[in-house]
Design a protein around this nucleic acid. Structure first.
Length: 428
DNA sequence: TCTGGGGTCCTAGGACCC
DNA sequence: TCTGGGGTCCTAGGACCC
C-alpha cells in the first residue's frame, strides 16, 4: 500500500493556460486578491527571478522588460477546475483526500492488476488530467504522506522522471532523503529550518536519524510525527471526510488607508456578509464573533523610517444564541468595532472572524432566552439565492454603502470559462 | 523544621500549511 | 501610491476548582 500525492503544477497559471494556449512557453503570473502580490508563477516567470509573494509594484520593471503575462485571481475558474481535477482522480482510486485547491492525497492499493506498475498508475493519471483538463500534474508515491510529498517534489524537480516519482524501497528512500534539504520538508518552516541548521541538521536523512527525545523537546509532537513518517511509519492518515470548520474569517485590506468609523463599518458589513454566506453554505451557526482593526505595518514615516503610529486591537463578542443571520451578527460586530475604534489612525484592515461554530441541526432554544430567529435565518438564505442568481451584493444591508469610488482592483481578470454562460468559449 | 496534589478551562503566542 | 487571505495544531501559563 502506498500513499500518493497528486499536485497540479503552477495551478493558477495552468488554469489560465488551459483556456489560452497562446500562453504556453511564456512567462505568466497570477496575483493575489485585489492585485496586491504575486501568488503563482509559470516556470518561465520563476526563471526570470520573480519571487513568490512579492508585491506586484516591486516587479513592474521585470514584468515589462520580459513581457510577462499578468492575471488577477479568478477563483471561480480555479475552484471549478480543482473540483474537476479531484473528480478525475476518483476514476482511478477510491480513496481521495482533497488536501488543498491543487493537491490531493490518494491511496494506491490493489491496482497492480490494472496497471503494470505503480508508475503506470501515475502516468495514467497524468495523461488523463492533461487530456480532460489540460492541467499538468506531478505525482509522488511513498510509504507515508510525508514521503509522498518528498517524492512529489522530486517528480517536479527532475524532468527525467516525467512527472512521476516512486519511493518504495529503502535504498531509494535513503538516497532521496540524503539529498533533500530539511527546510523543504512538509512541516518544517523557516523557524525550524534555522534551528535545525544551528544543530547541524541540514538534510532530511539527518533529521530522520535524530533522537526522538530531542525532536520531541524542540519540535513538539508534530516534529516527532514527521520523523516517524520519514522512517516509513504512517502517522498522518488519509482524511476522507472534511472535518467540520472551526472558524471562518475575512480580512481583506482596503487598497487605501481609512481613518473613519463610517467607512470601516461599511467594510465590516461587506466582510461579514461574505463570512455569513460561507457559514450558511456549510450549514453552520456561529456562537461568537471577533472583530479586529489594524494599521499598515509596512508604512514608514519619511525621515526616521519608523512605522507610522501602529495600532492593533481586537474584541470578541459572544452571542446569546448561535445564529447564521447576517443582520443579527452584524449588530454584535458593529458594537465590537465601535468598542475598539480609536480616532487618529489610518487603518489598513478591519477583520472579522466567526468562531464557536456548530452544525445547524444542533440549534436549540435556550430556557430563558429566545432561540435563533428562524425567520431571520430563512430570510438570509433567500438573500443568498437571489445574490447567487443576480450577482454578488445585489441585495445587501444598508450599512454596506454602495461606493463606486472604491477601486475594485481586478485589472487583469480572465473570463469565467467554466462557470458563467456568457464566458463559455465558442468553437467556430 | 515541615506548607498538597490533583484536576479543568481559557488565552496568547508560536509554529506550520496552501 | 501600491505590500494576500485564508486555515490548523500545540504549548505554556494563569485562574480556578476541590
Amino acid at each position: 500500500m502506498l500513499y500518493g500525492l497528486v499536485d497540479a503544477n503552477n495551478f493558477y497559471v495552468s488554469c489560465e493556460r488551459a483556456f489560452q494556449p497562446r500562453l504556453e512557453g511564456k512567462p505568466v503570473i497570477v496575483l493575489s486578491n485585489r492585485d496586491g502580490c504575486i501568488v503563482a508563477r509559470s516556470n518561465e516567470a520563476k526563471a526570470l527571478g520573480i519571487k513568490m509573494g512579492k508585491p506586484l509594484f516591486e516587479c513592474k520593471e521585470l514584468i515589462e522588460a520580459h513581457n510577462v503575462q499578468v492575471f488577477s485571481s479568478n477563483y471561480s475558474l480555479y475552484g471549478d477546475m480543482s473540483r474537476r481535477l479531484m473528480s478525475t482522480l476518483t476514476h482511478f482510486v477510491e480513496e481521495v483526500e482533497v488536501y488543498s485547491i491543487d493537491e490531493a492525497f490518494i491511496l494506491a492499493d490493489g491496482y497492480e492488476g490494472v496497471y503494470p506498475s505503480i508508475r503506470g498508475l501515475g502516468s495514467a493519471i497524468r495523461q488523463t488530467a492533461d487530456q480532460w483538463l489540460r492541467l499538468p500534474v506531478s505525482i509522488g508515491f511513498g510509504l507515508t504522506k510525508t514521503l509522498a510529498k518528498v517524492a512529489n517534489r522530486l517528480a517536479k524537480a527532475r524532468p527525467e522522471l516525467e512527472g512521476v516519482c516512486v519511493l518504495d524501497t529503502p535504498g531509494a528512500i535513503s538516497q532521496a532523503l540524503e539529498e533533500y534539504p530539511v527546510g523543504d520538508l512538509w512541516g518544517v518552516g523557516g523557524r525550524y529550518a534555522g534551528m535545525l541548521k544551528r544543530n547541524n541538521i541540514t538534510t532530511a536523512a539527518q533529521l530522520r536519524d535524530a533522537p526522538d527525545d530531542w525532536i520531541r523537546q524542540f519540535m513538539t509532537v508534530n516534529g516527532l510525527r514527521l520523523v516517524h513518517e520519514l522512517r516509513g511509519t504512517p502517522c498522518k492518515l488519509l482524511e476522507l471526510s472534511q472535518p467540520a470548520r472551526k472558524s471562518i474569517c475575512s480580512e481583506p485590506g482596503f487598497g487605501q488607508l481609512v481613518p473613519d468609523l463610517e467607512t470601516l463599518t461599511d467594510a465590516l458589513t461587506s466582510h461579514l456578509s461574505r463570512c455569513c454566506e460561507k457559514l450558511r453554505k456549510q450549514d453552520l451557526l456561529c456562537g461568537s464573533v471577533t472583530v479586529y482593526l489594524k494599521t499598515n505595518r509596512h508604512r514608514k514615516t519619511p525621515g526616521n523610517g519608523l512605522p507610522v503610529k501602529p495600532y492593533y486591537n481586537s474584541v470578541t463578542v459572544e452571542l446569546p444564541h448561535p445564529t447564521s443571520s447576517t443582520p443579527a451578527l452584524l449588530k454584535y460586530a458593529i458594537s465590537g468595532l465601535k468598542s475598539i475604534f480609536a480616532f487618529g489612525y489610518n487603518y489598513q484592515k478591519v477583520g472579522i472572524m466567526l468562531t464557536d461554530l456548530v452544525p445547524f441541526h444542533y440549534r436549540q432554544k435556550g430556557i430563558f432566552v429566545e432561540g435563533p430567529n428562524e425567520k431571520m435565518i430563512q430570510l438570509s438564505a433567500v438573500v443568498d439565492k437571489i445574490n447567487h442568481r443576480y450577482g454578488k451584493d445585489k441585495l445587501r444591508l444598508a450599512s454596506q454603502m454602495y461606493n463606486p469610488d472604491w477601486p475594485m482592483k481586478l485589472a487583469y481578470l480572465s473570463p469565467k470559462y467554466t462557470t458563467r454562460w456568457e464566458d463559455i468559449l465558442e468553437v467556430k
